[in-house]
Design a protein around this nucleic acid. Sequence first.
DNA 1: TCTGGGGTCCTAGGACCC
DNA 2: TCTGGGGTCCTAGGACCC
Length: 424
Amino acid sequence: MLFTPSNKKVLALVDCNSFYCSCERLFAPHLEKKPVVVLSNNDGCVVSRTDEAKALGIPMGIPYFKIRDFVKKHQVAVFSSNYALYGDISARIMKVLSQFTPEIEVYSIDEAFLDLTGFSNLQEYGLKIREMVKKLIGIPVSIGMAPTKVLAKVANRIAKKKNGHGGIFDLNDPQTQDSVLETIDVQDIWGIGYKSAEKLNRIKIKTAKDLRDANEHTIQKLLTVVGRRIVRELRGELCLPLELLRKDRKQIVCGRGFGKPVFELEEIKEALANYVTLAAERLRKQKSVCGTVQVILHTNPFKNTTQYFNQASITLLTGTSSTNTLIRAASMGLERIYQQGFEYKKVGVILINLCPANRNQMDLLSYRSISSSDSCMEAIDKINARMGRNALKFGACGTNDDWKMLAKLKSRCYTTKWNEILAV
DNA sequence: TCTGGGGTCCTAGGACCC
DNA sequence: TCTGGGGTCCTAGGACCC
């Protein structure tokens, strides 16, 4: 066969089948071929189902209390979720996958994109990957191959759904793409959610093929650049490259619903302190400090009672990863928004304004917008020395020009009153 | 009685600056 | 002090994903 030079990428999306359920099956082999579901936190709703459970008609996300009797009747095995276990198994799988290519993006707990550009006999290679993961870890995976991420997602869907593909589907061939995209509902494309699908349907775009062949500008007007990228990816043009390095989180969220309604501030505070502790651990793990702590407090939207949703943001003078400091800030925020008389359902904390811990305070607060210069720093240091620590919260500007510096200092991002600075 | 939790990216609009 | 245009930054909110 002739070798055809091509700059086309070959990406493979490896996706674990019913991941959480498959993990539970590892320790309960007798559940092979039996219906299994895994529930969310507090056993709230179904978050993972095996094919057998799907066949029984159990939908994703259904509240558990609605199917409790049904589940008993059909002898469905039910598990509470065990995220520590799933995380551990996931890490092992990724390790196995990275032996097949160094170019791997771990996309989620149960998915990874692999760059297989240049490999020959993809079908066989895919089978090998599949066998290896099954043999070493015990988890079944499906593999979709295509020139772009969006197409690889489509391919994976087919590998997973249709029997007779051996869990692998190659969508690199343009003719195959043509016939396959026709059968894919626009709503089932990666990145097209419920709202966007509605908009597309309104202008008679129903299938993935319709979307691929649509006018880019029309789509951009409708769905912003996000939609336009999807169109291009469907055409085989790579717009979403592999992200090989794991980036630091830009925000860290930690919160959970209470099992029962809660009324008292102290009780909420205690829960919040726990979440802050967890969030702070994650923060330190990625070696970042946090500049702003946001607290959220909700009543139960499913309940027919007076609703209350609120949030408070606390800006810290100095970036920190200290659990105690963060808890103090969060408690302050909570006190600000807590009101008596509501049945609270959920509290949580969001750490935002994160930056690497090896930057100092000045850098933290100017991290995103303003670049620094020494003379400016010196001036600010002097002002702070005269007026007390942290009189000037933000620092730095891009030039030595005194006038420009003063203009910067006058702007609203500096907390000290201008007259006081003049007095120095 | 009981309805998950943790993320990202994009845009519009306001505030502020020169 | 007034004027307007253009640029940048910040935030809230929307949409989406697993």
